[in-house]
Amino acid sequence: MSEIVNHLIHQQSSHCETGVVANMLSSKGFAMSEPMAFGLASALTFAYLPFVKIGGLPLIAYRMPPKTIIKTVAKKLNIELITRKFSNPQKGMQALDQALEEGHIVGLQTSVYWLPYFPEDMRFHFNAHNLTVYGKNAQGDYLISDPVFEEVVTCSPESLQRARFAKGALAPKGLMYILGKVPEKIDLAPQIYKSLKKTAKMMNGLPVPGVPFFGVKGIRYLAKKISELENKPSKYARLYLGHIVRMQEEIGTGGAGFRFIFASFLDEASKLTGDSELFELSQFTTEIGDQWRAFAVQAVLFCKDRKSISLQDISAVLIKCAEMEKQLQSRLLSLSAFK
């Protein structure tokens, strides 16, 4: 089998999808950092979804659902995004091979569980992990740039096929995507302000009465749920809090991580536009991220020794997070650039 290696710049990132976007664009000659991709996609949010269960516990997301980031960034920069899904795994793998032969680097949605290069303790059934395939070696293994790893990795065709066609919630169905031609010059500044406005608007949650699951409302709702844990068996309370921390920190860099990425985006944006207000907001977002980390510390403290801290205290830390995010929202909306 002949070897294919397409041009790719691999840079480690915090989060898979933004990392894939940044790496794909950079490889195409348009230098884009991960935080910039995250910010442009207005990916920062909060969602508490009690009806989507993971291991019997509710899904908590700190960013927009999978695929929105790549779609929004491509749309903002006016780049064509070619996506394909497959019902037949063989056809899906053939299409991947063909795209590689044509010299493309290909983004894929996969299930973490079936990727053999992941550490054992991190493998779980999460179907929306993104990575980039940039070639194939002489043994027929795929050359993969997985943005959350330091270095590029390889994966056998069998494992990759299984990962691409895993079933269950958020099933990838073999999704692959290729970027079209990248324009040479793009003025990012107007796009930055547009996406900031969108982020700020989303932070309030859905304007629908009786749907308290998103944005600041969602954080308050979660805080209420935590204070209600007192009437539940302590084993459940432990699992529930541990689960929140896992969703926040381990799975896809989580809550605090995303706040830091957003702060980094604001920092970069202020350099690009020369707007010092954005830099102040970046510092404030850092404080929010630190507050989320404080929440994780307290939640784990409860799991270790539940006498030293009460559920009300943990809930109070979370309410502080909600208050700070509300402040960030009003400060974002009152930026002088919007006046």
Binding site: Q12, G55, H243, R293, A296, C303
Partner: peptide, 22 residues
């Protein structure tokens, strides 16, 4: 006061939550 990317080899708090689930 500006942002940079830093590699982390893990956080004790996160590790505890993972270990609990495992």
């Amino acid at each position: 006061g500006h942002y940079t990317g830093i590699q982390s080899s893990g956080w004790e708090v996160e590790n505890f939550a993972t270990q609990m689930a495992v």
